Simulated assay, not measured.
Amino acid sequence: MFDDLRPLINSITDSNNTTESKLQKICELLKSEIPHYDWVGFYFKNGDKKELKLGPYAGEPTDHTIIPFGKGICGQVAESNKNFVVPDVQAQDNYIACSITVKAEIVVPLFVNEENIGQIDIDSNTPNPFTKADETFLEFVNFEVAKIL
């Protein structure tokens, strides 16, 4: 499945659309093509502030448009610079609930010139759905996205 999506990601990033449009299309592609991806979004560092700001996303609207560094899974990744896979969100103390249906989350940081400038965030309504293949694929997505930022 992921191998089939790689050329589609490349065709989006290589297109003549705006960066915002490309990110939106990536979110929509991942949400529609990967059954356990129920919400897909990008968060970006908000200027010089120690917070993340919601960018393009696909899925239910969220109230979490600004996330302070250190808060929730996304905020922790902003500080750790490492992937964070949460098989069961209920087991996490520092979790910001976006929806009662969310069971698991994966967040992969996005680096430009070795600086963590944001992340891709995936919520799943399926318990423990994420594998190493998800991590590797999302690292690929972020690597391609970094080229257009």
Rank of each mutant, 00 (worst) to 15 (best):
N16D: 13
N10G: 01
D3Y: 00
K132M: 07
T65L: 15
A97K: 10
I120H: 02
T136P: 01
P35T: 08
F69A: 13
I96K: 01
N125E: 15
Q24T: 14
T13C: 11
D93M: 15
R6V: 10
G118L: 10
H64G: 00
I122F: 11
L52D: 09
N113E: 00
N125P: 00
S15E: 07
E79V: 12
K31G: 11
I12P: 00
I66H: 13
E115L: 11
A78V: 12
T13Y: 00
K132Q: 05
I96Y: 09
T19F: 05
V89F: 06
Q76I: 12
G72D: 10
C27S: 06
D4C: 05
E135F: 06
T65G: 11
G41S: 07
L5R: 04
N81V: 11
N125S: 15
K103S: 10
P56G: 08
S80R: 07
P109E: 11
S32V: 01
V112N: 09
P68S: 14
V86D: 03
F44T: 01
V108R: 03
L29S: 07
Y37F: 14
W39F: 07
F2D: 03
D134M: 03
T18P: 13
G47P: 11
E20P: 12
L54A: 06
V112D: 01
C74R: 05
N116C: 09
W39H: 04
T101M: 11
T101C: 09
E51G: 11
L29W: 10
P129Q: 08
Q92G: 05
L29M: 05
Q24I: 12
T18Y: 13
L29V: 05
M1F: 01
T13L: 09
V86G: 12
P7R: 01
S15Y: 05
G75W: 13
L54M: 06
T13K: 02
V108C: 03
E105Q: 12
E60F: 09
D93P: 04
